[in-house]
Amino acid sequence: MEKEIIVLIGGPSSGKTTLINALNQKGYICYPEISREVIQKAQQDGIEQLFLENPLLFSELLLQGRINQYHQAKSEASEIVFIDRGLPDVIAYMNFIGDQYPDAFHQACLSHTYSKVFVLPPWEEIYTSDNERYESFEEAVQIQLHLEETYKQYGYELIHVPKDTVEKRVAFLMDFIQK
């Protein structure tokens, strides 16, 4: 079996981290979302919302972190690796706010591809905000549209994960992976 690097995408608070944690508990290799790390580091350095204050720098840091995750995933002994958000997410967010970015972002997305892309839909009933997640639910829905559009532009077939219990979402993923 060829190594599968599987990315989970979705707007803020759609259940990606919960699903990644459940997959991790089942013994799968999983890489967490790194934007919280970037945000928390910036906050320690006195920048409350790096994405809002300097979106390009924030996005460059995310892109590099996700490239590093991709290479780590490639080197894993496991045949399946799950990643919470992929490189095209960076472009989707930049498009969402209407900012420009260098062509290197596009090139990175072309040269670091994923086996499957699972999409978790916006889910108002589980939506929460916190110090690192400042978007409203309405903004989360708009981000979702940008994410799906961006991944489609890179040729990905999107697999939509239904709103359901964590256990049923895990089973849904396993059904697709084992095909």
Results as ranks from 00 to 15, higher is better:
Met1Val: 12
Met1Pro: 09
Lys3Met: 03
Glu4Trp: 00
Val7Lys: 00
Ile9Glu: 10
Pro12Thr: 11
Ser13Cys: 11
Ser13Met: 03
Ser14Leu: 08
Lys16Ser: 10
Leu19Trp: 07
Ile20Val: 15
Gln25Val: 01
Gly27Ile: 13
Cys30Tyr: 08
Ile34Trp: 03
Ala42Tyr: 02
Gln44Arg: 13
Gly46Phe: 14
Ile47Lys: 15
Gln49Met: 14
Leu50Ser: 10
Phe51Asn: 10
Asn54Lys: 14
Leu57Phe: 10
Leu61Gly: 03
Leu63Val: 10
Gln64Pro: 04
Lys74Tyr: 10
Ser75Arg: 14
Ala77Pro: 13
Ser78Ala: 13
Val81Met: 00
Val90Phe: 11
Ile91Gly: 06
Tyr93Gly: 04
Phe96Met: 09
Tyr101Glu: 01
Pro102Met: 01
Asp103His: 05
Asp103Tyr: 08
Ala104Pro: 00
His106Ser: 10
His112Gln: 09
Thr113Phe: 03
Val117Lys: 09
Phe118Arg: 01
Pro122Arg: 02
Pro122Trp: 06
Glu125Cys: 02
Tyr127Gln: 03
Asp130Ser: 01
Arg133Leu: 06
Tyr134Phe: 11
Glu135Trp: 12
Ala140Arg: 03
Ala140Lys: 03
Val141Leu: 11
Val141Trp: 05
Leu147Cys: 06
Glu149Asn: 14
Gln153Ala: 15
Tyr154Gly: 07
Tyr154Ala: 04
Gly155Thr: 08
Tyr156Phe: 13
Tyr156Ala: 07
Val161Thr: 10
Pro162Arg: 05
Lys163Arg: 14
Thr165Met: 09
Lys168Leu: 09
